[in-house]
Amino acid sequence: MYLFKYILKRLGLAILTFFIIISMCFILVKLLPNKQDVGFGKNQQLIQKRREMLGYDKPIMVQFWRFWRYAIVGEFGASEVIFQGRLVWDVFVERVPFTVALNIYSTVLSIPLGLILGIIAAVNKNKWPDHLISTGVMIFVSVPSFIYGFIVQYLLCFRLGWFSPVFIATEGAFSWAAFQSYVPAILCLSFGSIAGYARTLRAELSEILTSDYLLLARTKGLTKNQATVRHALRNAMVPIFPAILGEFIAVMSGSLIIEQMFSIPGVGRLYVSSIQASPPDYNFFMLLSAFYTLIGLLAGIVIDISYSIIDPRIRVGAR
């Protein structure tokens, strides 16, 4: 029951936070100069009419009310710059699958690899496999993903010619052709995650392997492998699992740079191009800012709750 109450409380706070942040964003965007386009050869009456329709002539508070009334049902208006006239929500829904597919592939690749490397390093602590893996992890955790992007693009795509350097598939996000185009991007996204998982698991597991209850497990007759798999690994998953869950929630937001680099038509690229457009496409900006804020808030809640689900001894929110 306390968990239910805790979830409700967290959700309530998250909604409040979301409301405040998006309101601030909206007002800050509206405070920017929004000049009437007075270029040569433009029908001023039409422009005037259009601005009236969009409500730009009304006070900011009126626009604010209007924004929230429509935003709640997913209407964030039409694109004004990069997709002239199309509803931003429609474009957004079109783009989401590409980002989701990319991130699911990379998560699916990185979890097993990261966990296996972490286990190998922890079991062979202070021997050469551990040193090798730890050094690799240190490098791959620190180096930014776009550096791998360049390496992968140069070596695998350009020198060896295995993959296309940019996304070329025209079919859906989950098609085989798209998968082939995704491969370099998946690699770049995975390196960091693999290293992250390996590092966390190594730290946890090597601590647990020296613990008393593992000694007990060995004294009662389990082999080293049995003890490691049945006792140590399970306990080591306590901090890993929420991280994985958080990653799954954040799959939609984690690839701004990689999407840009490999020209993947995903949400991140949409966001960057909406900002880079001149003038910036504010309707896209509002929608995607709301999206990223929401993802961040939800990920936080889910991670916190998952701690208590996976390990009953941890009672989040309990006094």
């Binding site: 998250a14 936070t17 979301f18 405040i20 942040i21 964003c25 937001s253 701004l256 966001y271 800012s289 990223y292 804020t293 961040g296 808030l297 936080g300």
Partner: peptide, 9 residues
């Protein structure tokens, strides 16, 4: 609240 704003925004 401040921490929840994406840094890009």
């Amino acid at each position: 609240i401040l921490a929840a704003i994406p840094s890009m925004v």
